[in-house]
Structures are given as C-alpha cells and as structure tokens.
Design a protein around this nucleic acid. Structure first.
Lengths: 218, 218
DNA sequence: ACCGAATCTGACCGTCCGGTCAAGATTCCC
DNA sequence: GGGAATCTTGACCGGACGGTCAGATTCGGT
C-alpha cells in the first residue's frame, strides 16, 4: 500500500500538501477539472507527479480537497455578514464588499466553484442539497425578520442571494469579459470600485432597504 | 484530402451538420470543451464519429461553430431591446425577460458561453475585445441618453449590463444550485416567475428607472 | 443508365495522461 | 546509532481519445 497514514503530522507532510493544494487551485481554476493535468499541477508545485498521488491518491480526491477549502471560505463570508444583529444596509453592503474582495484576491476559487456547478455539480450536489440549502434557509429567515420589522421591502430572499452571488462572482468568473469590454484603460482598482458601487446600489435600492429609500425620497 | 468543398449545398450536408451541431451543443454544455468526447457527440447525433471530422475537421472547429451560433443569439437579444426608442422600464424589463427566457429554453448555450469565459476565453477573446466591446459601447450610449433625459438614475452602464447578464445567466449556468437550494417542491414555472420578479425589481429600482421611482414614492 | 462528386463508415493509429511501482533518501523515535 | 516509518522520485503501464484513411455507398446532373 502506498497510502499515507490517516493522520500523520510531519512537517514535510504539511508543507508538501500545502504546495500541492495551492498549485492545484491555480491549475484547476485555469483549466477546469477535465482540462487540468496532473503533470502541470506537479510542475507548478515544484514536486514530482508521483508525489501528488502519494498524498491525494487520485485527481478527483485532490480536486475534492481543493473544493472543500473553497466552500469553507464561501460559508464563512456569508455567516459573518448575514446575521440579524446587523442592520440590512450594513449587512448587505458588507456582504457584497466581502464577496467582491474574495472575487478579487482569490478569483480562482470562484472559478473552480463555477466550473463545478456548470458541470452539474457531480461532487458538490450533497453539499448544495444539504448544508447550503440549510444555510440559505437561515439567511432567508434573517431577511424575513428585517422585512417583518419594515427594514427591507418585499423581495424573495433566496433569489436575492442568487442575484448577489451572480453579480459578485461574475467579476471573478468572467473577468476576461469585464476587462475586454472595459478596455485596457480600466485598471483593477477602478473596476472593483465601480463594481461595488453598482452592485451595492442594485441590491440596496432594488430591495428597498430603509435607509436608502429615505435617501431616494429626498 | 477528406475536406468537403467550401460551400456545397446538398440536403444531406445540411441535415447532417444540423444534427451534429445540436448534439455538440448538448454535449459541450454538459461536459465543457475538455470534458466533451467526440464519440459521445457522435452517439448523440446518431452519426459515426468519422462523420463529424468529415464536416468539421477537428473538435475545436466544431466547438467554434457551436460558439458562433450562440453568440449570434446573444447579440440579437440585446439588439432587440436596448434601443433608444424604448422607454427604459420596458427596455430593461423586456431584456431581462428575454434573457431569462433564453436561459430557460436554451440553458446549454449559456453554459457553453460561461465555460468558454471561465477558461479565459481562448477562442472568444477577439469577439469580446472587438464586437462585444463595440456593442456594449452602443448600449451604454443608450443608457446615457436616458440618463441625460432624466429617465434613469446615475449608474455605470457597462456594470449595469455585467450585472444583468450575471443575474439572468445564473439561472441557466448554476441551475443545479438554484434547484438544490429551493428544494424539490419548486417547479420550473415558479422559479422563473420569481427570478423575473426579483431581477426586474433589482434592475429597475436599483437603477432608478423613472416610472418605478414614482411608484416607490407613493 | 451512367459517371464523377459528395457522403458515409468501420477499422485503425499515435499520443497523451492518470495512475503504479519499486527502489532510494530522509526523518523520527528509542 | 540503528531500524522502522515516512517521504521522494524516475521509469513505466494500459487505456482512452482525437484524428486518419481507404473503401463502400449514395446523389446529382445529363
């Protein structure tokens, strides 16, 4: 058996796995699961190919490991902002800002997630149907709580989140399109500043968040 | 030379190519470019694999042909709605409705487009930088015309379109996620009705389209 | 009916790629 | 210091996949 022990704690182990995971995230995000080559991940990580298989067994298990990392961040961002203690305006604006920041500093993660969904989510389906569904249910309850207190207008909470995810992640997933359309003169700072302004405006005014409606009425 | 003549007009030719293109759109949309297998496209089309190569030469040329079809529809929908003759409310609502209809009846097209962008648009880059960029410029001019007449509030036109595309196409690209989160009780009619209501609301109120602001102020 | 062009097709090929393996190097623990 | 466990590595498979080809079949014009 070439399989490593279930839970070793060697330093070499940790370093190698980290390097492999980072290289894998890069290559999977550029090429997709099918397009990614183990040899390219190996080259990117600076380790021989056999080493990847020593630690992760198969391409699919390596991909799964990368996905789990991504999902953890995804859920953390939502949990940090969509909570009843926040006012709707700061919660939604903060969430949009945080998601755009993720899209900017770690676009590969968003792309891998997108690629997985595009393929019909063969590996992520259990997560989507169980944990994500539950989390969205909780987030929807927060929205409905705000609505009941008149802090936010009528809006279908789940769809509001679909739209927020779509708008924010598009700046990572389809970033080539954004850059091509805006042309070479648009630098990254300007793009993300305009993106945040636009998405925030659509979300806050589009869902009648109270403070903003007040501003609107002046 | 196995290459067919530049522009034959046989009936068999037309039928075979149609069948191949339809099968290719299906398979490319489910598996992506790298994941798609020529053998699967052949099986789906009911023709032997050698036939695909007779008409299209290579996998990449077949994929290109599918992409061109998709782009034509993409541009047509935009050209039909975002014109200065329309009032902003009907133009934007109509565009959203049309894009959601496309997402519903031809989700594979949207997914192929998304997959191409995800991979960095190796084949679509010229289109993005030339034709799409020009078209978005024209559409932005329409928005700015409305803004100058006070029919729509301040909004960055290009980003408004990025957001509209993101929100509408997410219902095709990430449809597994939508279904998983909403659960088995949500049928397609209900999903798309709620999607249209939500996206339209975000776009119209979020960009201060006049009619809607008036409604808001009552 | 005839003939060249167009279309179709099964069998085949070379390459690429995920995965394996066995032997060598290093680390860890007593 | 020694032996076992862990880690590293180049060389090597077997299957899958895009693409080819030569021969069979059909089509279109006269």
């Amino acid at each position: 058996m070439g399989m490593p022990p279930p839970a070793g704690a060697g330093a070499a182990r940790r370093d190698s796995m980290r390097a492999i995971l980072a290289a894998a995230e890069l290559v999977f995000s550029r090429r997709g699961f099918e397009g990614a080559r183990m040899a390219e991940i190996a080259a990117e990580s600076g380790l021989p190919k056999a080493n990847l298989h020593y630690y992760f067994g198969t391409k699919e298990r390596l991909y799964r490991a990368v996905l789990e990392d991504i999902i953890r961040q995804w859920l953390d961002t939502a949990a940090a902002w969509i909570v009843p203690e926040h006012a709707p305006a700061e919660a939604l604006a903060g969430y949009v800002r945080a998601k755009l920041m993720d899209a900017r500093v770690r676009p590969g993660a968003s792309r891998i997630f997108a690629g997985e969904l595009l393929r019909g989510a063969p590996l992520l389906m259990p997560f989507l149907a169980d944990e994500l569904r539950r989390r969205v249910g909780e987030m929807a309850a927060v929205i409905e709580g705000w609505a009941a207190r008149g802090l936010i207008g009528p809006v279908a909470p789940a769809h509001l989140f679909f739209c927020i995810w779509a708008m924010t992640q598009t700046y990572a997933d389809f970033d080539v399109q954004v850059r091509a359309v805006l042309g070479p003169s648009a630098d990254e700072d300007a793009i993300f500043a305009a993106a945040e302004a636009t998405v925030t405006q659509l979300v806050l005014h589009g869902s009648f968040v109270r403070d903003n409606v007040a501003i609107l009425n002046t």
